[in-house]
Design a binder for these strands. Structure first.
Lengths: 189, 189
DNA sequence: GATTTTAATGAACACATGTTCAATATCTTA
DNA sequence: TAAGATATTGAACATGTGTTCATTAAAATC
């Protein structure tokens, strides 16, 4: 099972394309493995050689999107020049840009019939960034577990995103930024 | 489709019992509708008369557990007498007791192959209680949307619960209470 | 208790799932 | 380029899904 065997690359590509095609027609829950294989012209047995469920295929896409989340944290703060930098840690603020950019995907991630896996992928991503920030920028009270605190903060952000998603991302990114900034300011005074 | 027709009551009861029996043997994801019906001695067609998926059946259970969450908020603060009441709003603190009490169920709710539905049921429950509290006890800054703020706070709590779940609920309820109290205290100074 | 209403059943259907296995096609590497 | 390695295929199989429909059984109502 060598990952860069041309046959494997070709097969996976075909399956990826097939999934994308089908996703433009109907939601993930209504897409069957058999259907993906028919479109991809790949034997159904071959699918099971690489994935267990159609969710695993979607997961590979989501992996790439998570890469974008990580990368957007590494690059300089280009995206936030319009924002008052004193209001909030610009790192935090980048999340909403990222969500907005891939909202087509996040509509799937947050739909209620989809497995929790994707939620956890997002949670783990934000959680890791949060933890990194908390350990370097702030000095912690030792009564608070860094794990619990960062889980709290990370999921709080996702709470905003859920609310945002439920209005089909109608509010602007800057509205979300302002809301978060205002919420964080409550604690400070 | 009269809900208190004895035949319907009997059928649903049989399906509920069958699901409980099977859940003690294996995870929800490995249980099939056909299996539930075999154990319940109910025709498979009858299942589809009442539910769409096995998840709908589980949802009925979870509904009852959500009732417990609501009820525990209405009754007087019996459960928190040992806690220093000055530290934190006792309302908030009840959540962890509730989770602990039904941790068998929450192990399912938070498992990664289960649909997001149950997560949202929990989220909506806490969110509603949070919103009620925020509107009555605090006077809000009008720059902050109460919807966003309560979604933020509600999901933050669930963040702690996720972290707790991932250690298989090894920490005690009082540890969780203390962590939350400490986190909330950060904002206040 | 007889009549009416309706839930439950069993059978059948097309299709999806998940797995196996020998045969084949395609890639790697020597 | 030939030889060996291995991914893919097609066929088959048992089982699950979701739906339909006439028949039967068990409730509700009178």
């Amino acid at each position: 099972m060598c990952a860069n065997d041309l046959r494997i690359v070709k097969t996976k590509q075909a399956l990826h394309n097939a999934l994308l095609t089908l996703l433009s027609e109907k939601p993930l829950e209504n897409i069957t493995i058999a259907e993906i294989c028919r479109v991809a012209k790949v034997n159904r047995g071959t699918f099971y050689l690489h994935y267990e469920q159609k969710e695993g295929l979607f997961e590979e896409y989501f992996q790439e999107i998570m890469e974008d989340l990580y990368n957007s944290y590494e690059e300089p703060y280009r995206a936030v020049t319009t924002l008052d930098k004193n209001q909030l840690d610009p790192n935090t603020i980048r999340i909403f840009h990222h969500i907005e950019r891939f909202k087509m995907f996040y509509r799937i991630v947050f739909s209620k019939n989809v497995p929790l896996t994707y939620y956890y992928m997002l949670f783990d991503g934000i959680h890791a960034l949060m933890k990194r920030d908390l350990t370097t920028h702030y000095n912690m009270h030792d009564e608070i577990s860094i794990e619990y605190y960062s889980a709290y903060q990370a999921n709080a952000i996702i709470g905003l995103i859920i609310q945002w998603y439920r209005q089909d991302f109608e509010d602007s990114v800057s509205t979300l930024n302002k809301q978060l900034a205002a919420i964080l300011r409550i604690g400070e005074k």
